[in-house]
């Protein structure tokens, strides 16, 4: 079943000449983890803002979880989607952690008794309950981003959109945020759409869509995308370590397999290479 369906989407920003999207089509399956990659200005952020109804398309049709996106239905659509943005400081609305998690629930007019339970559950989920009364200045970037995630979890959406949500975090913070997302995707079967330049995040996805000037240039599983090696840099992604190693080995005139190898695959192949000699 498709949870997001985009048909013949056309969009351009009012102050710009060029068309951002022209006859764009995309389907996202329920429970899927989709990574959208592409160089800066390829339209990734615009696309997810269109899905959430934060921007209005010129023409075309967007259907989210069976609801057609119109000016009247926009709030229903938004209630199905949870969005985490790039800058952890600028999306922190509440004065402290629990207030921020409660913000979305207050907007949805959830009764207070239920809010108390949901806020606590969401914060325990991301491991931030003991920081419930902390102000944003006392938290690290990774912790703030976990709070942002808790604010989304508390709302119980069907789709989580990450708009470069890990790009401003240190490797440790990024890892812990990704861990929570993976659990939500695999255990609770939430649909995840992540915009990213991060190889780890893209490799966690089940499907990768490469955007270029508002067009899908590739749409495949991560392994296929990663096998393009150095040309990944052009589409805004750092090649994985195993691909970089392959390039160096080719320079040493060692014959390497063409298909993409994960870290474990690479190790196995190296073992085999040496045992043959």
């Amino acid at each position: 079943m498709d949870i997001v369906e985009i048909k013949n989407l056309t969009f351009k920003y009012p102050q710009q000449e060029v068309q951002n999207f022209n006859n764009f089509n995309l389907k996202i399956k329920k429970g899927e983890w989709l990574a959208i990659i592409g160089h800066n200005g390829s339209g990734k952020s615009t696309l997810v803002r269109l899905i959430d109804g934060l921007l209005a398309p010129e023409s075309g049709e967007i259907t989210v979880s069976g609801i057609k996106l119109t000016p009247e239905s926009v709030w229903d659509v938004r209630s199905k989607i949870g969005m985490v943005f790039q800058n952890p400081d600028n999306q922190f609305v509440g004065a402290n952690v629990e207030d921020d998690v409660a913000f979305g629930l207050e907007n949805a007019a959830i009764p207070r008794e239920e809010m108390l339970i949901r806020v606590r559950q969401a914060l325990e989920r991301v491991g931030m309950w003991e920081f419930a009364d902390h102000e944003p200045v006392r938290l690290s970037g990774g912790q703030k981003q976990r709070v942002a995630l808790a604010g989304i979890i508390a709302l119980k959406p069907e789709i989580i959109i990450l708009d470069e949500a890990t790009s401003m975090l240190d490797p440790e913070g990024r890892q812990s945020v990704l861990e929570i997302i993976r659990e939500l995707n695999q255990v609770e079967h939430l649909t995840v759409i992540s915009i990213t330049h991060d190889i780890d995040e893209a490799s966690n996805a089940q499907r990768v869509v490469v955007l270029d000037d508002g067009k899908i240039v590739q749409d495949d599983i991560p392994a296929k995308i990663f096998s393009h090696g150095a040309s990944l840099v052009k589409i805004g992604l750092e090649p994985p370590f195993s691909e970089k190693l392959k390039e160096e080995l080719i320079k040493q005139e060692i014959k390497v397999p063409d298909e993409y190898l994960t870290k474990e695959g690479m190790v196995d192949w190296l073992w085999q290479l040496f045992s043959k000699q």
Binding site: R49, D52, L54, W75, R78, S79, I81, G82, M83, F85, N87, D89, N90, Q91, V93, E98, D99, A102, F103, G104, L105, E106, N107, A108, A109, I110, P111, R112, M115, L116, V119, G151, I152, L155
Partner: peptide, 24 residues
């Protein structure tokens, strides 16, 4: 820039004005 980011994030989390909200 902060104001714009914050407004987008608030809207994405369903903020439609002060009426009809509950209080934490």
């Amino acid at each position: 820039n902060r104001a714009e980011d914050l407004a987008t994030a608030m809207e994405a989390r369903g903020y439609r004005g002060g009426e009809g909200r509950t209080k934490y």
